[in-house]
Design a protein around this nucleic acid. Structure first.
Lengths: 338, 338
DNA sequence: AAGGCGTCTTACAACGTTGTAGGCTCGGAG
DNA sequence: CTCCGAGCCTACAACGTTGTAAGACGCCTT
């Protein structure tokens, strides 16, 4: 059905290679020939078969992005930025969701034959751990996002979780809060965003001589809104006093605000709320959410440019790239408590 | 670098076709041969080259999904569902964002050589209009989502916008509201979600003998939160009385609730708010949002199965498939006003 | 013992593209 | 007039896979 180089070549009365040369702007083509070929291309509505081109060139012109779940605003916004950045470099993005498939699903993803369908992978694992570091030894360009694995054999982009969480906590302390609850901790976790942010929290407390109180820690495996609300209710039901909440991400924070309201606690009057991620919604929630912008836009852009460098053959030791963060001040936690 | 059928064949001492047969579960293979081949495959870590397979078979094993912007929750959740449904059928999804590229961007997308990289396209246009219907005559499986074009030459999935908007408006009327503002109308639009939902609104008013008041209509081109807030403020500043708001999507509703709060109006006490889309956030906003579930999950599943049917060669006239809707009652608009 | 048939395996071509090597034409220099 | 080289174009092979046609082998039937 679709026209091929052969069809165009026959119509234009030249060899297929000449047609190919016209398409690829090879310099030495007689203008009249070029014209004839272009006319034939237009007449047949020829477009190159990218699959064949891929086979020949070894490049697919696409990169894969693997995230846990696009329905999570953080990953959706990350994906939007990655797609935009890739497009600027002429690449398309296929998205894989690891969902609730767990560790095995993530490992399978790394070795799936589908990897051959893209030139590289930007991977944000959720379940893999340091023990799986060997699985990252793959023969295609791989850029790792997140905090599950360190010192791997690949380029790694991450945020300054400890420093950012510490800064967020100190912001709450500076605004006059002393009893700061946490929502979203993963119990027993050593690395991973939750553990690192928790560590930043503890460092901030310690630096200000505030004792750590385990009863202020609300655990939660997943980071959906519902989990934030549940975790917050748990803390409230313990009857322990608190005047601020640091939610380990924005989504949890929205759930937590919801639970606070149900309990008759006012934000920020009774309880200040700090999030983490600065998703779009944080600007428009009621109250709007004070949060940490962990440099998501930079991460997306850099992930794409980094994977492209590797695709183009850059041979350098694995790099660890850290995004800058910023506290975005909004209503849920004003700089100074009244 | 990577092993090919040739390498495996050489190691196992058979022809490449035999290896291919083993991989594709061709029945007549001697068990000993099969074993030897499988051992060779394991030893070399062979995985098939999907690009070559695509070239040979004409199938890429991937479908494309084109949406305006993944950062919009509705499309992110749609994409998540589409990817999950596609995966269940062994397909990957590449996502294209048309963003602010406008009509031309959408038309280009339909003819881009990239279309050859996937077996079909699920397309949710935002700018194309009925005049562009001819552009939908493409030679690959195309499933259209949304309300921009009707009676096109392709399968079309859409929601019952008029009926759903009418039901939503009647819900507000039944709960005792009479002055119902609209947020998100597109002025002068004839088809498209905005126009259809506005039409449903007018039908409901008319059916209940409530006069239409143009001063209650808040226009807005884009449907981000900020637009909802701006449009709502505009209506408030007109000084016209109203006791309910029908936002043409949830995101607008959140923006509108924000503006209402700033103006000292309580939801739902002073003003009831109705959204449209039932995005995840609607459950957890404060107050939670009464909204219309337009059947997004069904649309995603059906879009994938429909495009697959066409990929598999189904030859049938273009179909128009309508999703069922449902009013989801939450706090922002209780069934009965006090 | 020969023919036939079913089982297993192979060689070859093809999918549509691009790199390589080489051939033809024409103008200008020797 | 011949030779050379630049400019333009072509034939062929290759990327890695699978469909087709056919070959080799062994077993059963007659």
């Amino acid at each position: 059905m679709a026209a091929t180089l052969h069809d165009v070549a026959r119509l234009a009365g030249v060899s297929i290679k000449t047609v190919s040369n016209v398409i690829n702007d090879y310099p030495h083509i007689r203008p009249t020939t070029k014209e004839r070929v272009e006319a034939a291309i237009a007449e047949l509505g020829y477009t190159p078969n990218l699959t064949a081109r891929s086979l020949r060139s070894g490049r697919t012109g696409s990169i894969a992005l693997a995230v846990p779940d696009l329905a999570l605003a953080y990953f959706a916004e990350l994906a939007a930025s990655v797609i935009a950045a890739a497009e600027a470099s002429g690449l398309v993005v296929t998205i894989e969701q690891t969902g609730s498939g767990g560790r095995q699903r993530e490992l399978d993803l790394l070795t799936s034959p589908r990897r051959k369908m893209s030139d590289g992978l930007i991977f944000s694992p959720l379940e893999m751990s340091q023990d799986d570091v060997a699985h990252l030894n793959v023969d295609y360009p791989l850029v790792l996002l997140g905090e599950r694995i360190f010192e791997g054999p690949t380029d790694h982009l991450t945020m300054r979780n400890v420093e950012a969480a510490r800064a967020a906590t100190e912001y709450l302390i500076d605004s006059g809060r002393r009893r700061i609850a946490i929502v979203g901790a993963h119990e027993g976790e050593l690395i991973g965003s939750a553990a690192l942010r928790l560590q930043g929290y503890r460092e901030a407390l310690e630096a200000h001589g505030i004792p750590f109180d385990g009863r202020l820690i609300g655990p939660s495996i997943e980071w959906h809104r519902a989990n934030g609300a549940r975790s917050m209710r748990e803390i409230i039901e313990r009857g322990v006093a608190f005047d601020a909440v640091f939610a380990l991400n924005d989504t949890l924070a929205f759930g937590a605000m919801r639970a606070l309201q149900e309990a008759g606690l006012r934000v920020p009057d009774d309880v200040a709320v700090m999030g983490f991620d600065d998703i779009d919604e944080a600007q428009y929630s009621i109250p709007s959410l004070t949060t940490v912008d962990p440099g998501r836009a930079w991460i997306a852009r850099t992930a794409v440019s980094t994977v492209i460098e590797r695709i183009e053959g850059l041979d350098a030791p694995p790099r660890l790239l850290l995004a800058d963060f910023e506290i975005v001040q909004r209503e849920s936690a004003p700089a100074v408590a009244r």
